[in-house]
C-alpha cells in the first residue's frame, strides 16, 4: 500500500495528521535529510519536500526566499531524489514532492516519474497543474504509482471539488484562504474556513482532506483542521529556520516548533 494511504489508515479517529513542508536544499544542501528525520521524530506524519523554482507564482515571500537560497545552493531534481533515497534508508515517512511543472517538464516527465517512484517518493503536488491540465503528467504518474494530489480553494465550485476528488489520490489539499502561501494571523484564516471545510466534506468523499496555508501554531491547526483529517504547515517552519540559521541551535528551534505544532506547548 502507498505510504500516504497507509498513514491515514493507521490514524486514530480523533487524530489530526501533520504534514510539514520544507524547501529541499534550504537552508543548505547537507541539512535536508537530517531535518526531515528530526521532524519525524518530533511529530511530523508526512513530509512535503519543495522542489525550488525560480518563479513560484503561488508562493508568498517566505517560500520565494527559501527557493532562491536553495537554487543558489545548487539544488536540482537529481539531488532531491538522492535525498529521498537517503531518507528511505532510515524512515518510512510518506514523502510528497511539491513544486512547479517547468523543472519537471525540463527533466522529462516520464523519467521524472520513474525516478521519483524508484527513489521512494509517495506523491506529487503541482500547484500550477489544475485538474484541467493534469494529463501532461497523469499517464506517467499512474504508471509509476505516484498519486497526484490536487488542490481546492474556498472559491472552488462543488463540481470542481468533486473533480479534484476524482483525480486525486492520497489526499486532497484544501487551501484555506484565497491567496499565496505564507503564515497569517490566525483569525484571518479561521473566519471563513469552517463553511469551506463543511463544503469540502460534502463534496470530497473519496479522499482524506488536509488543510494548509496560513497555519503557524497548534491553536491555528486545531481550529482550522477541526473538521479535516489533518493540516499542513510550511512557511512558519521556513520563517523559524530563517530566524535562527546558522546559530548552533537552529535545528532545535525548528524541532521545538514542530513538536508544539502537533502537541501544543
Amino acid at each position: 500500500m502507498n505510504r500516504i494511504t497507509q498513514k491515514f489508515k493507521e490514524k486514530a479517529a480523533d487524530e489530526k495528521l501533520m504534514s510539514l513542508f520544507i524547501t529541499a536544499g534550504y537552508p543548505d544542501l547537507e541539512s535536508t535529510v537530517e531535518i526531515v528525520l528530526g521532524m519525524e521524530e518530533k511529530g511530523a506524519d508526512m513530509i512535503e519536500l519543495g522542489m525550488p523554482f525560480s518563479d513560484p507564482l503561488a508562493d508568498g515571500p517566505t517560500i520565494q526566499y527559501s527557493s532562491d537560497i536553495a537554487i543558489k545552493n545548487g539544488i536540482t531534481i537529481d539531488k532531491i531524489f538522492e535525498m529521498v533515497v537517503e531518507i528511505r534508508k532510515r524512515s518510512e515517512i510518506p514523502i510528497i514532492l511539491m513544486g512547479y511543472m517547468n523543472p519537471v517538464l525540463r527533466y522529462g516527465v516520464q523519467e521524472f516519474c520513474e525516478k521519483a517512484s524508484r527513489s521512494g517518493v509517495d506523491g506529487l503536488i503541482l500547484p500550477d497543474i489544475p485538474v484541467d491540465e493534469d494529463e501532461i503528467i497523469r499517464e506517467h504518474a499512474e504508471a509509476n504509482n505516484l498519486p497526484l494530489i490536487h488542490l481546492v480553494a474556498p472559491n472552488s465550485s462543488d463540481i470542481r471539488m468533486k473533480l479534484a476528488d476524482s483525480k486525486s489520490s492520497g489526499f486532497v489539499y484544501c487551501v484555506s484562504v484565497t491567496g499565496v502561501t505564507g503564515a497569517r494571523d490566525g483569525k484571518e484564516v479561521s473566519d471563513s474556513v469552517d463553511r469551506f471545510i463543511e463544503r469540502v466534506r460534502e463534496n470530497i468523499i473519496g479522499n482524506p482532506v488536509m488543510v494548509g496555508f496560513g497555519i503557524k501554531s497548534h491553536e491555528d491547526a486545531k481550529r482550522i483542521a477541526s473538521n479535516a483529517d489533518g493540516f499542513i504547515v510550511g512557511s512558519a517552519l521556513i520563517n523559524t529556520i530563517k530566524n535562527s540559521y546558522p546559530k548552533p541551535e537552529w535545528k532545535q528551534d525548528l524541532y521545538s516548533l514542530v513538536y508544539s505544532l502537533k502537541f501544543g506547548n
Binding site: L57, P130, E133, A153, V175, G179
Partner: peptide, 19 residues
C-alpha cells in the same frame, strides 16, 4: 476550445484562479 495553439497555450494556473 482548451486554449491551445497547436501544443502551446493552456491554463497552467493555481486552482484559485480557475474560476
Amino acid at each position: 476550445a482548451r486554449g491551445y495553439f497547436g501544443q502551446y497555450g493552456g491554463k497552467f494556473v493555481p486552482e484559485i484562479l480557475i474560476p
